[in-house]
Structures are given as C-alpha cells and as structure tokens.
Design a protein around this nucleic acid. Sequence first.
RNA 1: GCGUCGAUGGUAGAGCGGUCAAUUACAACAGACUGUAAAUCUGUCGCCCUUCGGGCUACGUUGGUUCAAAUCCAACUCGGCGCA
Length: 482
Amino acid sequence: MKEFSFEIKKKSKEAPMARVGIIHTPHGDIETPAFIPVGTKATIKSILPENFNEFVKADAILANTYHLYLEPGNEIVKNHGGFAKMMNYVGPTFTDSGGFQVFSLGSAMGVGVSKIATREDLANENIEKNISKKFNLLDFFKRNKYLFIEIFLSFMFWGVLRIFSEDLNFLLGSVSSLIFFFIIDILFFKKYRLRDRQKYNNLKNNNKSLVKISENGVEFKSVFDGSKHIFTPEKSMEIQHDLGADIFFAFDECTSPFANKDYQKEALERTHRWAKRSLEHHKKLGVSGATGQRQALYAVVQGGAYDDLRKYSAQVLGEMNLDGKYFDGFGIGGSFTKEDMTKILKITNENLPENKPRHFLGIGEIEDLFYGIENGLDTFDCVSPTRLARNGAIYTKDGRINIFNSKYKTDMSPVCEDPSCYAHKYTKAYLAHLFRSKEMIGATIASLHNLHFIVSLVKDIRQSILGDKFFEFKKEVLERYR
RNA sequence: GCGUCGAUGGUAGAGCGGUCAAUUACAACAGACUGUAAAUCUGUCGCCCUUCGGGCUACGUUGGUUCAAAUCCAACUCGGCGCA
C-alpha cells in the first residue's frame, strides 16, 4: 500500500510556476494538474459510479464533512469503511473540512452573495448594509401597518360618537374614551397583527445567518432541523477521520468577499490557530478509523483579496509543523474577484513550499483552470460542472449554452462533439426534450458531459505543459470558448 | 322539453359593482449558478408608445341597469348535472 507523496514530473518551460506531477495516495495516483469532481453527500449528483468511472475518467473525487456529518452521520460512514467504499468508488478521495459552510450558511445566507464577487459589487459600497437598510424599512412598514389603522379608526369612532352624544358627555369628549376605543381596536385587529408579525419574522429569518463563529470553533444550526452543532478543528478532524478520505483539509473560515481587511486579518489569524489545532489533533488521532490508513492533511491559505495577507498566510502555514511534521499540501480558499484571482494565486504559490501539492478550493470555470495552473496549482474541485448541468447549462468548445433555449428544441447536432463523451450519442433536441419534460436522465447526461468536458480539458492542459505548448493551447481554447 | 349550475388570459383556476390588464399555479421566453441549504433561484409573460407613466382592446355573444360592470339584469350560444 502506497503512502501519500507528491512528485513533480516536469516544470513548465513557458510558465515558470506551472508544473506537471503525480500525487500518490493509498487508493491510487492523481496525475496533476487534475480536476476533482465534487460528490458532497457521497454521490456525484445524478451519476452512477460505474458511469462516472467509465465516462468521466477523473482521478479523484471530493466529499463534504458538514453534509456527511449531518446525514447520514459520520459514524455510519465509518461503519462502511469510509465514504468511498460506501458509495462504491475506487480511487483517491478528498474531504472538505466544513470551512466553506462558515461562509455559505453564514454571511452568504439568504443574501445571494457569491464567493466570487464582481468589481461592481464591491464598488457598490457595503452591499450587506444596503440589504439590512431595506429590511428595516420593510420591517417598520410591516410592523406598524395595523397600528396605523387602529389609531385612525379609534379617532373615527370617537369623533362619530361625539357628534351624536350630547347627553353622553360623561363618556365622551375625554381622553379616556379615546383610549377605550383604541383598546377595542387593538383587540379587534389582534389576529391580523399577529399574522403580520409572523410574516415579518419569516422574512427576517430568511436573511439570518445559521452560524456563530468563536475562537473555539463554529456553531452551526442544521439546515435540516435547526438543531445546533459545534464544529471545532478537533471535531472536523474526527469526522474526517471517520469519512476516511486520502486527503483532507484543516478546518478554516471562508470569509465573505465583502469583509473588510481588519476582519480578513482577524479571520486569517484564527484560521492559522485552527490549522495548528487541526495538525495536533490529526496526529493524536493517528490513522483513519474507517480505512486504517494514514490520511494526508492540507492546510487552507486564506487572506481574501489582499496580497500581503495571502503572502503571510502562505508563509505561516508553509512553515507550520509539529515536531517536524508539516502539512502534506495546501488548499487555497476564500473569496475574491476574478480580477484579483491571478495575483493572489501568484503570490500565494510563490510563498508556499514548492514540493507540496496545492489545491484550489471550489474553483473550476474554464478560464480559472488555465490561470490557476499557470500560477502553480495542481488540483481543483468545483461544483460548477454538475450544478450547471442540472440546471441545463452545457459546456461546449464555443461557450456555454442553455439547453432550455427554444432553438435547441429542433437541434439535431450531438450534445458533445467528442466521441469519447457519453453525451456524443444524443442530440441536443433530445436533451432539450428531457430537460423540458423534467426527465431525470437529462441531468445525468448533462452532468456526465460537463464533467467529461472539464476533466478532459485539464488533462489536455497537462499534455500541453508536457509538450511545451501551454500558451498556445490556452489561447486556442479560450479564444474559441469566448 | 323542463329545472339547475357554469362559461375568466396558452392551460388549470381565483375574483363576484370602483383599489382589475385581472391573485396563484403550470406552460412559454430569457438570465444566473465557482470548497452544493441548489433537479435551484431571478426576471418577463394582452397589444402599442422610450422607462416613470400613458394609450388601446379584453373575463362566451348581444343588449340593458349604473357616474362606474369580469362582477348586477335579460335574451341567446355552448357545456355539466338532475328529471322526463
């Protein structure tokens, strides 16, 4: 059985940081650069493992700690001998630490913020503040609508009774009678006010973070039943030992692209302390309880879009060790704009140990892959191919298409030109029909295609580096894709 | 034949005198999606004018009542049900 190791086969002659290598793991080799499909809940959504192996030909897959902890529970996964065995997948595996959920269930919750922000978003100052302002106004209106009606009607009753009640002076014409009518109104409108309040609360809850971050860790409210769960670096290590991946990540905090520098710094320092604790606890736990094998631990570099923070984080984590035991590799996480991405990657990878593999967490659009590899990355995981596929977006060499567009209803051309792709056998018209009629196999074909497309693209990039044609290949692909 | 209930935008189906070009769902047309709260979400959805807004034609047909009708009345047409 092979231990984890990384060897660099070739450094690009054109792009100084790009390299071709092999990550050896107990379950097989990953030829890098490589794209790692995501199977969050121990399934590549909509694809059978056999079809995945035969038609996608990826070297590894990645699952998620948070999701498998909540369902079915890491204990059950452990009893299967790890998530790979459970899902009948043979090959190298990764698990993510749950750090991304600090962002997606935290600051991004219900606000529609993506971790890849645009420059416009950032320029549009404090988007989060704007959102909360809007909600305060709405809040005020919602909460007081019936109060206004009540006050108005009280005055009406009071006024009307005054006109007809010269002989009822003892009751009317006094403030107390006004209050009397007001109370009647309040009782009368009680049920409407309550209903309104309920609506308002629902609205507010939609916009509410499900996480609480502290030095010790992160408190998550389960999205399934609202139950509370604390993730600490130690807890994350324990779960990931039960999940049994060959490679796993230290618990980190993925910050929002809208967080300011002070906060990024604070979160970064915390992530470093958590990395240290992850390293310690991983050592204490020893081999995986699920597979009996030693697992490789990657640290996660953070620092948002700030050069100096990224450099600092790379240096600290690169040197971090426990009695000479260093991290086996590094993930690059966090959020930023597309424009900032390249410079961040460059400065990060320049400051990470060269002989360790580097993984780009959650990034995988076509141009990102080129820029990532050019700047020294070895592996990528991304949800994009499968999620896009399920929503009807199909990669083609000439750009992404939306199979729902009416023109594809009658398009007899194959979904994929490449005969080695499963989708080659089907017309776009058929795929359009499957999607329109909500047939499940539509998502399957589209997912197989999109994954095949991205995985083979990265393999081709690998070949282009080996053949010293990286830039030529990049230009050719991107020009056509755009 | 008699009685009774009904007829609303591509479909289903709300509305039952002004706040109605008409709630909603589906369909249709577009868009978004980057460590998966995601087989999800957003927008448009009678016609015309450049948006705010304005104009026009519309709730089976034709008349009527009313300042005002998808909404009330009458007749007709079509359909469901019941009795012959």
